[in-house]
């Protein structure tokens, strides 16, 4: 990892209006309208749900439930992030394409995201009705951005620590992790736009735990405002990750509170999309933060006013 030049708002602020609307599928999300992205895994082996929604019907039930709980985006994945059994592109497509089609039929308005690093799979899910490609491995296949451009869908540009897909960080070091994150994701975002991806459909994600030790992820969280200042909408994927676990020495089942604390900090610093397992809890947290900030009004205003 080289030491990138620190990035300032002035350098990148001109790319798009700071805090403009995010347009994905049929939805437009305003700058002060935080969005919960619900994790829907069609995997037998993901770290937290461990196959609970691997079956098609179980995945569809999960989608119905998270839409009901207020998720604006569902993020469908067919390959676990961590190392494990090899999943071919054909097998990945088998897992996700039909699910995308079925979700599209049942929920015309929900934004469908697919978590994939493969352009081949991206192409198939876009034909099936996906609205967003969540390139969580940071542009490993550069053609994925071209697929997004061709289909007019959105793209998540992630900092995965320059690692190949499904690898773990080992003794990774950064001179300045935030500077590396920003130069990487802004580079990916600008490249995507130059290829024809709509600027109002591009998100940047610091990639917590991806190519990072826990201190790196905590620093990225603490300094998230610097990412927000680039003007690109920031997505954070914090849910039950190791940086929360190591802050507390707790296993995945006991990381909800820590996840929500990091969620609240990120929301306060300006993150706009929150990828989460626990949709309702996440929605309540970001709503409360919005109310504290004054960007959302009370849902009920009666105390002391009768």
């Amino acid at each position: 990892m080289t030491a990138p030049v620190p990035v300032t708002r002035r350098q990148y602020g001109g790319r798009m209006e700071l805090g403009g609307p995010l347009r994905l599928g049929r939805r437009t999300f305003g700058p002060t309208e935080p969005v919960v992205m619900a994790i829907v895994n069609r995997t037998p082996d993901s770290f937290f749900d461990r196959g609970r929604t691997y079956a098609l019907d179980a995945a569809l039930d999960r989608v119905d439930q998270v839409v009901d709980e207020g998720a604006g985006i569902v993020d469908i994945g067919g390959v676990k992030a961590a190392p494990g059994d090899e999943v071919s592109a054909d097998e990945e497509a088998r897992r996700v394409v039909e699910l995308v089609e079925r979700v599209r039929e049942r929920h015309p308005d929900v934004v469908i995201s697919v978590d994939t690093y493969r352009a081949e799979v991206g192409e198939l899910v876009c034909r099936a009705g996906a609205d967003l490609l969540n390139d969580a491995w940071g542009g490993w296949e550069p053609e994925l951005a071209e697929v997004a451009a061709r289909h007019g869908v959105g793209l998540v540009c992630t900092h995965a620590g320059h690692l190949p897909p499904r690898t773990r960080p080992h003794r990774v070091q950064y001179d300045d992790v935030v500077a590396d994150v920003i130069s990487t994701v802004v580079g990916l975002a600008e490249r995507a736009v130059s290829l024809g991806v709509r600027a109002d459909a591009v998100l940047i994600d610091p990639g917590h735990d991806f190519g990072k030790n826990s201190r790196h992820s905590l620093e990225v969280t603490r300094r998230l405002g610097e990412m927000v200042d680039t003007g690109w909408p920031v997505l954070v994927a914090l849910s039950r990750k190791d940086f929360v676990g190591e802050a507390l020495d707790l296993p995945t089942d006991d990381r909800l509170e820590g996840t929500l604390a990091a969620t609240a900090v990120s929301a306060f610093l300006g993150a706009r999309v929150f990828r989460a397992h626990d949709v309702e809890a996440t929605r309540r947290v970001v709503r409360t933060v919005s109310a504290v900030q004054g960007s959302a009004d009370l849902v009920v205003g009666r105390r002391g006013l009768a």
Partner: peptide, 16 residues
């Protein structure tokens, strides 16, 4: 004389 008569003060519960 209830402030909650004013929608701006009642927020989302105004319609109730």
């Amino acid at each position: 004389s209830a402030p909650l008569l004013v929608p701006a003060l009642a927020g989302g519960s105004a319609h109730l």
